[in-house]
Write a protein that binds this DNA or RNA. Structure first.
Lengths: 160, 160
DNA sequence: TTGTAATCTAATTTC
DNA sequence: GAAATTAGATTACT
């Protein structure tokens, strides 16, 4: 029964419309949310209430060239979340939790979020990236070990 | 409690689920647990049945470096299928079909698999993920609409 | 330039 | 099959 024949590649290629994607799948940006009166441009994630003092900006003056401003505005328009800058205190806590549990469940993530004044989403992303980093470094060291073993074999062979 | 997976290989090896063993012992880091010799996986079976050699003509060429080989070996050990990289042609076809039918039956999936040189499983997973993506975007746009209505109400109230 | 937050999506798990 | 999550790869910001 050729119910399938309706979907040959050729026929499908015929009705190819380039810009249906934009209509169909708008970017998913939940943080574009209701902040009634406020600037939610806050970018830097945490606020008060903690030991955390993130003062010293060093003296890195960022170039505020029109090009940069334009790029930033474009990114905002495109919808990328402003990069979160974790405080050293927040990172210390996250790292110490990561030591004992690299896969914190929702409960732990929520608790961390509350105590560090971060969104739970930020916590989750942080752990994802942290695991990727650890895995990367582990992979590289393993690779180096293999490489060294191989070169050892090579050199011991050369000695003969 | 963990009566769920009583005698799976993973549970015996302690590779079960992260949250269950964090308290008990070392952190759960699957990629660290590599034990070279092969008694770890009961199901090794045949060699390359799922190695996924599907490098497509117009997709990015993959480097065959030792590091990559090692990564693939790791993935095999851990038991996760190597990530499939669909070619732009394949995606174009899949998207086109998705426009017309988001729930293709087995017959359509098989036909796609054959014509795109993919496993039918990959097709099915692709449609599942694609539906999830579409659902997310719908949720988001609905939310934006509500948000706009609310802010309209707010501003019209401010005008008084 | 480097490190890493953010994004996208294929694959997995649980229900 | 949906929902939630993880992994892998990449992008882009500082």
């Amino acid at each position: 029964s050729s119910a399938q024949s309706a979907f040959t590649i050729d026929s499908i290629l015929g009705l190819d419309r380039p810009d249906q994607r934009t209509v169909l799948s708008a970017p998913y940006r939940p943080w574009t949310d209701v902040k009634p009166a406020g600037q939610n441009r806050g970018v830097v994630a945490d606020s008060d209430a903690s030991v955390d003092v993130r003062v010293n900006e060093d003296s890195k003056s960022y170039s505020k060239s029109p090009a940069d401003a334009y790029r930033r505005a474009l990114n905002w328009y495109i919808g990328r979340r402003p990069r979160t800058a974790f405080s050293s205190f927040q990172i210390k806590i996250l790292e110490s939790v990561f030591q004992v549990n690299s896969y914190p469940g929702i409960d732990i993530r929520e608790e961390l979020a509350k105590k560090l004044h971060l969104d739970e989403d930020r916590i989750q992303i942080w752990f994802q990236n942290r695991r990727a980093k650890l895995k990367r470094s582990h992979r590289e060291s393993q690779f180096l070990m293999v490489k060294n073993v191989l070169s050892d074999i090579q050199s011991s062979r050369d000695e003969r």
